[in-house]
Design a protein around this nucleic acid. Structure first.
Length: 319
DNA sequence: AATCGGTCCAACCGCGACGGT
DNA sequence: AACCGTCGCGGTTGGACCGAT
């Protein structure tokens, strides 16, 4: 049986939006908020399909959108995140408040690709075009030494990636909520982040890594930023085998799936002192919004709970 | 002024993931 | 477990714009 169309195409407008349509959509969302895109067009009196409305709002009408050219800092963040995540535009957008995935994707294809080629970097692979590692490359890959922090049966490898987030501002809540939904790819590849604001990383050009190791199962890589920037965040990346999936679907097991869009990570808040952190290291499902260092109040429900748990653990160690 | 080619970006399309039943 | 509806993501496209000739 074929997939039913998302909307009745015969009675919907296509193409560029008119000012009146924009205004209708804005007015409706102002009153009713985002969501339920399927029924929105009818309720708002728009002859558009829900997908079209959603796209128009997210990419163009949202009030928190940043307009204008990308800054050099934004360029560098995009390049670095792309080298890490690939074409995960929504994930990258989640790190650039006010920018949309579509905008970043377009910008990548029209500007950054050329920029990278001029630097001698292959934009597809983010590796040097000539196959050697140039000093200009933003990301160098080296073997990582790891320590075993994982008590689960799934092999994980934690690596450090230092990214330059000098321009990082507090993300808008909408970015955070969107980010919460970006973890499928990371789940599938069992990739974990631990993002801290450890200033020592700024000074330490080596960004030492820690994490589990299983030489038989997981490749180990360390991505290391050239330490020429004044402020760098320490982003630990764990790469391992994909989480086991139920036999007939791509979903997680029942206990795992209790956490919607969950994100398995070593849940250690940045402020936890090292000994406590080491003791508290257990795999927990939390999402990227915490792992990316967002503050309480901007976290999703899952991360908020995880944060509270970890803080109580911290209290026990200090008390 | 007209034409052409390149660039940019808003919007569309198809697909996969998730949640509910 | 299977099915269905909805949502969100990434790739692609079409047309507007702009500079060169």
């Amino acid at each position: 049986m074929g997939r039913s169309p998302c909307c009745e195409k015969a009675h919907t407008n296509k193409g560029a939006w008119t000012k009146e349509e924009d205004q209708r959509l804005i007015n409706y969302i102002r009153v009713h908020g985002e969501g339920c895109w399927r029924s929105l067009p009818k309720a708002a009196g728009l002859l558009r399909c829900g997908k079209s409305c959603r796209l128009r709002w997210i990419n163009y009408l949202r009030p928190d959108l940043k307009r204008g050219n990308f800054t050099e800092e934004e360029d560098e963040i995009i390049i670095k995140l792309h080298s890490l995540l690939g074409n995960k535009w929504s994930l990258i957008a989640g790190r650039l408040p006010g920018r949309t995935d579509n905008e970043i994707k377009n910008y990548w294809n029209t500007h950054i690709k050329r920029k990278l080629i001029s630097r001698g970097i292959d934009p597809q692979t983010d590796r040097p075009l000539n196959g050697t590692t140039p000093a200009a490359a933003a990301v160098a890959m080296t073997t990582a030494a790891s320590t075993n922090l994982d008590t689960s049966t799934t092999a994980k490898t934690i690596t450090n990636i230092c990214l330059d987030f000098r321009s990082s501002a507090t993300p808008h809540p909408s970015s955070v909520s969107r980010l919460d939904n970006k973890t499928n790819f990371l789940n599938d590849h069992n990739i974990e982040f631990k993002l801290t604001t450890d200033v020592s990383c700024v000074e330490d050009t080596k960004c030492s890594s820690s994490g589990t190791t299983d030489e038989n199962q997981a490749p180990q890589v360390q991505l290391q930023e050239e330490q020429t920037t004044p402020s760098v965040l320490n982003l630990e990346l764990s790469i391992g085998l994909p989480k086991p999936k139920s036999s007939s679907s791509s979903r997680w097991s029942s206990t795992e799936s209790k956490v919607s869009h969950g994100f398995w990570a070593v849940a250690v808040p940045p402020e936890l002192p090292l000994p406590a952190a080491a003791a508290a290291v257990v795999p927990k499902p939390v999402c990227l919004c915490w792992q990316l260092g967002y503050k309480s109040g901007l976290l999703c429900k899952n991360c908020e709970m995880a944060l509270q748990k970890s803080l109580s653990t911290k209290d026990r160690f200090q008390g």
